[in-house]
Amino acid sequence: MNHSPSHLDDRASWRAAFVLAAIVLVGYGFLYSLAGTALGRVLFPHAATGSLVEQGGKVVGSALVAQPFADARYFSPRPSAANYDPMAASGSNQARSNPDLRKRLDDALAAVAAREGVAREAVPGDLVTESGGGLDPHVSPAAARLQVARVAKARGLAEADVAALVERHIERRQFGLFGAPRVNVLELNLALDARAR
């Protein structure tokens, strides 16, 4: 039987290493990426190109990227550590024990409470904290409801109408199982603008 060491192939094969590198970089890297990209583009063209949203035929943003809203006529998104710039996307990376975080949250609570005309205790946490990527497109339903009175007043609309619009924009847990209920701020604000026209 052939169990002698010569049966084993123990050469340090540089050729194999270079060929493997070529297979990995071109095949497993580039061609695999192309295949995945092509499949995605063909099957889900809208989702594959950034879930862009339009207003009056013009691309105004992505449903997956928060935009800044400062005007009282708009619902406010969560604060952003990246100042809403996707090229600089980042969280604050501040620890719970960091005094700077505590001061920032304190200031934000006071500012939001004053803006919405409510007590500090009524402000939901997601509206004063910065998200992981700094571009969270959503706020919690509570955070959206909190802003209804202010937005309605600024736009001269009935509070009930704005409240109804918010309720319609609440996305439930996906399939009733996954994640948390939420409101997409950009889509809500676009719907507000669409009513005004």
Binding site: Y32, S33, L34, A35, G36, T37, G40, A48, T49, G50, L52, Q55, V60, G61, S62, V65, Q67, P68, F69, A70, D71, Y74, N83, Y84, D85, P86, M87, L186, N189, L190, D193
Partner: peptide
Amino acid sequence: IDASAELKQQHIPLGPVAP
């Protein structure tokens, strides 16, 4: 959309992300 906000231009970075 909100012209009064500080950020005037927002670039949406895409690419062959999913694979």
